[in-house]
Design a binder for these strands. Sequence first.
DNA 1: TGCTCTCTCGACACTGTGTCGAATAATTTC
DNA 2: GAAATTATTCGACACAGTGTCGAGAGAGCA
Lengths: 211, 211
Amino acid sequence: MMSAMNRAGSRRKRSKGDLTSQAILDTAEQLLETRALDDIAVDELTSGAGISRSTFYFHFESREAVLLALSERITDSLYDSAVLWLRRGSEPPADSIRRAIAGTVALWRAHGPVLRAAVRARDTSELVRGFWSGVARRFIESSATQIEIEREAGVALPGPPTARALATVLISMNESMCYRLSLSRKSAARDREVVDTLTAVWLRAVYGVPQ
Amino acid sequence: MMSAMNRAGSRRKRSKGDLTSQAILDTAEQLLETRALDDIAVDELTSGAGISRSTFYFHFESREAVLLALSERITDSLYDSAVLWLRRGSEPPADSIRRAIAGTVALWRAHGPVLRAAVRARDTSELVRGFWSGVARRFIESSATQIEIEREAGVALPGPPTARALATVLISMNESMCYRLSLSRKSAARDREVVDTLTAVWLRAVYGVPQ
DNA sequence: TGCTCTCTCGACACTGTGTCGAATAATTTC
DNA sequence: GAAATTATTCGACACAGTGTCGAGAGAGCA
């Protein structure tokens, strides 16, 4: 919350505390590339930031709070990605859906460690769950709305399933594939294959046969 | 491994050690209904089984080994479920796919806690990962084969995507929806909605338009 | 009975957590 | 710019949990 305040345009000189908070966050993000959140000890976080272990608790309530702050760091790009689902103008569905999915995959490639840790902690920590259920809702709602628009225009296949149920399932599919993908070594070919496959399933599930 | 030996048809009288192993497993399965594997201390497992904490390490190498044994307990029903994907005779696709998906959902309802713990530990423990990647391969392979058969018969939409890529994505979708579903309180209506939606997506992704 | 496995236990050394009060550094107030 | 206040850091402490060891109890068998 402290970092949120300071990021939010405040021009007040960054206090010393902010700097250590940032150092802890940076260390955490780096360590998450290799190990799971529960495997990371508090003193690894603090020694990375050059302070003693107990000082950690002045800046964060828990390891989960660190993850939450890390999540907030990427919330913006996340919402940008969510907005991409909205089909613009007369662009064909295949293009906008592919663009959105490619955006999501890129996001997971860029922030895989944090996103994976967040997905895992969602089941464990009430704090993290609250935050991410809000994000998920936003994703699902915007996709469901888009599906409804397409249905009313007679372009998409009618329900059942409900636009909302369909959106939930498809978003969940994207998430779990991105999770897996972000675990494998980066490969443009593999990324493209996943984007292609997900796009095909979205198109077939929402609109029916290709074209 | 001890319990595996004894399950494998050996008619030898169940020794005392087997009984405690079973008691530990039962306790673990029960505790997993409420809490995550990492939140469960070894002495909770052993006090549930009426033995002292250090005796645990005579029977199991680690908490993960317990989860593995628990997984093996349900492997059989799991493979039954995998076989269900195979379409039999001239039954319409919608029926066989729905039946298979309903079977998977039922399995997750019955063994949700263990399956969730296994999915989570897959990322953490090499032991668990090895076991479950084998199971996943079996699922994916049998689905991909089925898709190929349908394509060659001219019933299913041709690729791309590859039968294998399509199967991977759809199975992954099923798993993540089952995971979520098993976290919510049991509701026949909700279960049915999920089965309906997943079935619709499978049908549209594999065969195209409804019918 | 004595021998040998199987199984159990308590004690120990370790690693990690979270809290406290005291000490120091930075900032504000007068 | 000195004093008061607030922000930040630290080491020590009490706890909780892990995994290992060697000593022993108990059951099955010669």
